[in-house]
């Protein structure tokens, strides 16, 4: 990945994460007020709306911003490594939650307490998609970290 492409990808990612964190906060506040928030994009991608998601998304956004802001390779790589790791972890946790909730519905259906099984909305959350996009960034960060911490014999 060339430097300019990386910068562009990071600027785009940080903007998306920061904007999405604002949406999560907005949705939470709307919900507290009993109003409808921005719950989905085109009825396919689900949007979060709780304070925990807001903090996690904001953290990733801040770290990606840090990786663009810092000129020093060491500082920039550190932010990118931790930020992309959290982005991927956030995606993985949502996937796990989605699978777990779907399994729960299946168990309830088996026990006769539910009539149908539907895929949990967690599986289509935006952070799941963003985390998948974050995988190349994480791989790049690991490669950079390896070269920075390489043992020179």
């Amino acid at each position: 990945m060339s430097k300019s492409w990386l910068r562009l990808a990071l600027i785009a990612s940080s903007t998306i994460y920061l904007a999405y964190s604002a949406v999560a906060l907005y949705n939470w506040l709307m919900d507290l007020a009993g109003l409808e928030g921005l719950t989905s994009i085109l009825n396919t991608v689900t949007l979060s709306g709780d304070p925990g998601s807001f903090i996690a998304l904001l953290t990733v956004g801040l770290l990606f911003t840090g990786s663009v802001y810092y000129v020093d390779d060491y500082k920039s790589t550190s932010c990118l490594l931790v930020g992309s790791a959290i982005a991927v972890a956030l995606s993985a946790i949502n996937l796990l939650v989605g699978v777990a909730l779907t399994c729960d519905e299946a168990i309830l259906a088996t026990l006769g307490e539910a009539t149908s099984i539907s895929l949990a909305s967690e599986l289509t959350r935006l952070e799941v998609l963003l985390g998948v996009i974050g995988i190349p960034l994480l791989l790049y960060a690991i490669r950079r970290a390896r070269s920075l911490t390489r043992l020179e014999v």
Partner: peptide, 15 residues
């Protein structure tokens, strides 16, 4: 046996 300018721990710890 070699020189390491930076450890992975220090790198992660910055953030």
């Amino acid at each position: 046996a070699g020189v390491k300018k930076l450890s992975l721990t220090s790198l992660i710890d910055y953030a």
